[in-house]
Nucleic acid binder design. Structure first.
Lengths: 197, 197
DNA sequence: GTCTATATACCGATAGAC
DNA sequence: GTCTATCGGTATATAGAC
C-alpha cells in the first residue's frame, strides 16, 4: 500500500492548485498562508511541511511553469508551416493562455514586481527566461535569416510581454494583426542592416 | 506669513519622496505607512491627513509621473532630427530613466501586478497610458507614414516596456542597437502590408 | 503528516490631546 | 497639522497533541 505516499502527493497538489489561484487573485503579498491552506482543505501546518514557507510554494509553482512554457514553444515549432503561422501561434499562446490556465500572467507580474526590488529575483528570472530565449532563437534561424550571432529571442519575448500588457488594459489597443506584424518585423529586422523582407 | 502653508507643502513633499523610495524598494504591500512616515520625519497621522490612505499616496505619486512621461515624449519630439534619433531617445528614456529617478520602473511594475488582479486598476492604467499612446501616434505620423487609422502608440509603448524588462534581467540580452532596430521595425511595419522602408 | 492552539509581531487606520 | 496612544485585525511561523 502506498496510501501514505499518495495522500502526501494529493496534499502537495491541492496546495499548489490553491496557491496558484490565490496568488493570482490577490497577489503573493495578499494571499495568506492560512487562506491557501484552507482552500486546499488543509491547514497551514501542511503548507509549511511541504514547502517550508510561502516563498517556497511560489518557487515550486514557478518551476512547473517554466517547463510548460518551453514545451509550448517546442510544440509550435513542430507544427507551424510558415513564419507568420509560428508568430501567430506564439502570440495566441500569450494573449489567451493555452492550457486553460490564465493565472500565470498574474503570477508573472508578481515576479517582475519582485525583480524590480531584488537582485536574487532578477537572477531567478534570467535563468527562467533563458530557455525560452534559446528556443526562439533556434526556431528563428529556420524561418527568418538573422545576422549570424544576433540574438532575437530576448526581443521576441519582450515584445510578446509588452504587447500583452497593452492589450490587457485596452483590448482594442493591440489587434491580433498588429501583434503578428510587429513580431514579424522584429524577426526580420537586424541591428546592422535594414529589414530584408 | 505663509509659514503654516509652507510647512504643509514641505510635509507633503517629504511624504511623496519617502513613499516613492519605499514603494520602489519594498513594494506597495511591503512598505508600511509607519515606515514611510518615519522616513519622511513625520508620523503616520500626517500621511492619513494628506492622502487619506496608503493607496491615496500611491495615486498621488502616479499622477505626478504621468505628467513627467508625457513631458519627456513631447520634448523628444521637438529636438529629434530623424526617426532613428527619436526612437533612440525614447529608448534611452526608458532604459536608463531620465530625471535621475530610477524608482518609477519598480512602481510601474507594482501597478501592473495590481492590474492583473483588479479591473479598477486596469482602467486606471488605461487612462494613464492613453496620453503616451496619443503622443507617440502624433509624432509617428510625422516621421513614419503609417496606414491611416492604424495606431502604433500602444505597440511602441509595449515594445519599450517589454525590451526594458528583458534588459533588466540580462543587460546583454537586448543591446541598444537591437532596441532601436526593433522600434524602427515596429514603426514602419503595418498590419496589412509589408514593411516599407 | 496533519491537526489545533498559540507565540510574536506588525499591519492600516482612528481618536483625541496639543 | 501633527502628535501619541491604541484599537482591532491579521500575518507568518512554531510547538506539541494525535
Amino acid at each position: 500500500m502506498a496510501t501514505q505516499e499518495e495522500r502526501r502527493a494529493q496534499t502537495r497538489e491541492a496546495l499548489l492548485e490553491a496557491g496558484a489561484t490565490l496568488f493570482a487573485e490577490r497577489g503573493v503579498a495578499g494571499a495568506s498562508v492560512d487562506a491557501i491552506a484552507e482552500r486546499a482543505g488543509r491547514t497551514s501546518g501542511a503548507l509549511y511541511d511541504h514547502f517550508g514557507s510561502k516563498e517556497g510554494l511560489l518557487f515550486a509553482l514557478l518551476a512547473g511553469w517554466v517547463d510548460d512554457a518551453t514545451a509550448v514553444i517546442a510544440a509550435e515549432q513542430a507544427t507551424a508551416a510558415s513564419l507568420d503561422e509560428w508568430v501567430a501561434a506564439m502570440w495566441r499562446a500569450v494573449s489567451d493562455p493555452p492550457s486553460g490556465d490564465a493565472r500565470w500572467i498574474a503570477l508573472e507580474h508578481e515576479l517582475w514586481s519582485w525583480a524590480a526590488q531584488s537582485e536574487r529575483a532578477r537572477r531567478h528570472l534570467a535563468r527562467r527566461y533563458q530557455a525560452a530565449w534559446d528556443g526562439i532563437d533556434e526556431v528563428a534561424t529556420a524561418w527568418a535569416d538573422p545576422v549570424p550571432g544576433a540574438r532575437v529571442g530576448p526581443a521576441v519575448v519582450g515584445v510578446l510581454m509588452g504587447l500583452e500588457m497593452m492589450r490587457r488594459i485596452d483590448p482594442d489597443a493591440v489587434t491580433d494583426a498588429t501583434a503578428v506584424a510587429t513580431l514579424r518585423a522584429v524577426l526580420t529586422a537586424a541591428p546592422d542592416r535594414s529589414p530584408t523582407r
